[in-house]
Design a protein around this nucleic acid. Structure first.
Lengths: 302, 302
DNA sequence: CCTCGGGTTTTGATATTCTGAAAACCGATT
DNA sequence: AATCGGTTTTCAGAATATCAAAACCCGAGG
C-alpha cells in the first residue's frame, strides 16, 4: 500500500497549510508550488474543498481562503475535545498571572501542532501561531515521551539524524527521568535551542527546503548534545532564562493528550522556576482530572 | 470530468458527517453505511484523516471521533471569517434580549449550513444544531436570494420539485420583493412549514432515505403554496406565531455572507414583529459594515 | 476452554480514475 | 499590441481505487 486516498491526503495538506497561515489567502499556483502538488491535481482538490464551503474563492483575484463551513467543523471538534477548551481557559489565566506566553500543543503523527496561544513571551522567541506544525524530533517533545513505552521513545529517537542518535541515547534517559520525576519539563534558553526552534518552524512551512534544513538541524542537535538544555537540577538561588516549561495533560488511556507550555521567561530564579512549574503542573492535573484523564503510573524506568 | 478528487470529496463527506453530529463517535461500518462508501475505500480515507489528527480512533472500541487538529483549523477559519465571530457575539445578545433562539447560517453550494446557535426558542421547533446541513430549497432561504440576480433565483427555484415550480414562480417574486423592501424575511408558523423543516433536516442526515423524503417534500411544498408562509403585510395589532425572522449580512461583493435568524417567537403582535425584525436587521447591517461588507442596491425588480 | 458472531482488516484482480507536463487560454499591465 | 502571471484544458499513460470475499480479531456466551 503506497499511499491510499492520495487526494484525501492532499486535501488535508492544503487545509493544514491554511491552518498554519491563519487569515492568509493563496492562489492556486502558490498552493501547488508550496505543497509540491501538480497544478491540475491541486485544482481538482481545491474545487472539491470549495464546493463543500471549506474554502472560498475570491471571484476576481481567484485566491482561496478558509470558508465558513470549517467554523462549524471546528466547533464540533471542540465538543469532542473538551480538554482543549478547558485548557484554553486555564492557560489564559496563567499567561496573565505570569505575564508570559502560554501555549497548548498536541502530538499528531510525527508532528507537533499548536492549538492555542495566549499572552506574549517575555523573551522574544520565534513566533508561535495557532495551526503551526513542526516535526517532533528530540530535543523537542520531552513531555510527550517521558511517560511512554520504551518502544515509542525509540521511534521518537529514530526521527533524529543518525549521527546524533548515539549521543541522544545517552542524554535522553536522564532528562526523561527528570521530567517524569518532577512532572514537567524545563528547558533553558540557548542560541542553539532558539535556532532549532526556528529551523523546525521553517521546516514545517517550506517542504521544498526540507533537505537543507534537515541537514542544518542535524548540526544544531549535535551542538546541543554538549549543552544542558533540559534543566535536570534546579538551583533555587541561581538565575535562568527559561525557554519553556511544559506539563502534560493525560487522556483516559494514560496517553499524553495535550502539552501545556509556558514560554520565554526572562531572568527568573530557580525558586520561581519551581513555583511556575508546579503551578503549571497543577493546571495540567486539573484539566486531566476534569476530562476523565488518568496519570500513568511511573512504571518504566529507563 | 466525472468526479475528480473522489477521495477528497469523501474525506469532506466524512468530516461533514461528524460536523453534523457534534460529539458523536462512529465505527468504520457505521460511517461506510451512512455515507454509502465502500468499506475499504472508507478505511483508506479514514486512515488519512487519522494520520493528520483530524480524526482520533479509540484504541479499544475502534470508533472514530473528531481530533484536536481540527480545533486549530477552526480557529484559523474564524480568522478568515470575522463576520461569523462578530455575528456570534451580537446574536448572543439578541437571543437574551428577546428570550428566543438566534441562529447564524450560511449558504454552501446547494445547502444551508448552521454555524452557530444561541439561546432557546419559545416555540419548540425542530432541533437545530451547529454543523447541520439541509438542502436550500424554497421556501427556505429567501434572504439568500432576495438580492440575487434573476439567474440565481431561477437556479434556486430549479431545485424545487417540477410540479411545484409553476406555483412558486407566481408566489416568489412577491415575497422576495417584500423581503428586499423590508430588509428581512418573516415566516409564520404553520404545521406544514414545521414539517418541511423537519423533513429537510432528516434529508441531510440520512442520504439513504433521500428519494422517499424528496417525494414528501414535494407534497409539503405543494400544500404550502396555498398558505401564507411569508408574511408580506404586517398588521400591527394582529398576533402571530413566528417561525423565523431572517436578515442578511453582506460581504464585500454585495453577496449574502451570512443569514441571521431569530427562531420560534410565540404569540407576538405585529408591532413586536416589526420591532424584532428592525433590531435584527440593524444587527445585520452592523456586522456587514464592520466586516467591510456592502449592501447591494435594490437594482433588480422582478 | 472453546465456539460463535459482529465487526474490522487484509487481500488481489480488474478497470476506473487520477496524474502530470505541456500547451492553450485569459486578462491584466506595460 | 505585446508581454507576463496565472489559470484552465487536454490527453495518454500509469498509478490508484474498487469490490467481494476471506481471514482475522475480540468479546460474549456456552
Amino acid at each position: 500500500m503506497v499511499r491510499p486516498a492520495l487526494a484525501a491526503g492532499r486535501a488535508i495538506d492544503i487545509l493544514n497549510f491554511f491552518a498554519a497561515h491563519p487569515g492568509g489567502t493563496f492562489t492556486l499556483s502558490e498552493l501547488s508550488a508550496s505543497l509540491g502538488i501538480n497544478l491540475a491535481s491541486a485544482l481538482s482538490v481545491l474545487q472539491a474543498l470549495e464546493d463543500a464551503g471549506y474554502l472560498v474563492r475570491h471571484p476576481r483575484r481567484k485566491t482561496y481562503e478558509l470558508g465558513p463551513a470549517l467554523v462549524a467543523l471546528g466547533d464540533a471538534a471542540l465538543r469532542s475535545n473538551r480538554a482543549v477548551d478547558l485548557a484554553r481557559g486555564e492557560m489564559r489565566l496563567l499567561a496573565e498571572e505570569f505575564s508570559t506566553e502560554a501555549i497548548i500543543s498536541v502530538s499528531v503523527g510525527d508532528d507537533l501542532v499548536i492549538l492555542a496561544v495566549e499572552g506574549r513571551p517575555q523573551l522574544t522567541s520565534a513566533d508561535i501561531r495557532v495551526g503551526q506544525r513542526m516535526p517532533l524530533v528530540p530535543p523537542l517533545g520531552q513531555v510527550f515521551f517521558a511517560w511512554s513505552a520504551q518502544e515509542d521513545v525509540d521511534a521518537w529517537l529514530g526521527r533524529l539524524d543518525r549521527r546524533m542518535q548515539a549521543t541522544a541515547r545517552v542524554h535522553l534517559p536522564v532528562t526523561l527521568a527528570a521530567v517524569r520525576e518532577r512532572g514537567y519539563s524545563i528547558t533553558v534558553e540557548s542560541p542553539t535551542r532558539t535556532e532549532i526552534g526556528a529551523t523546525l518552524e521553517r521546516l514545517a512551512d517550506r517542504p521544498r527546503e526540507a533537505p537543507r534544513l534537515r541537514e542544518r538541524l542535524a548540526e544544531l542537535a549535535a551542538a546541543l548534545g554538549e549543552e544542558d538544555y533540559e534543566l535536570v537540577g534546579v538551583e533555587p538561588d541561581a538565575t535562568y532564562d527559561i525557554t519553556t516549561i511544559v506539563a502534560p495533560v493525560f487522556d483516559a488511556h494514560g496517553q499524553v493528550a495535550l502539552a501545556l507550555t509556558l514560554n520565554g521567561l526572562r531572568q527568573v530564579t530557580g525558586r520561581q522556576v519551581t513555583a511556575h512549574g508546579d503551578r503549571l503542573a497543577a493546571t495540567a492535573r486539573l484539566v486531566t482530572k476534569q476530562t476523565g484523564g488518568r496519570t500513568p503510573d511511573p512504571l518504566y524506568d529507563l
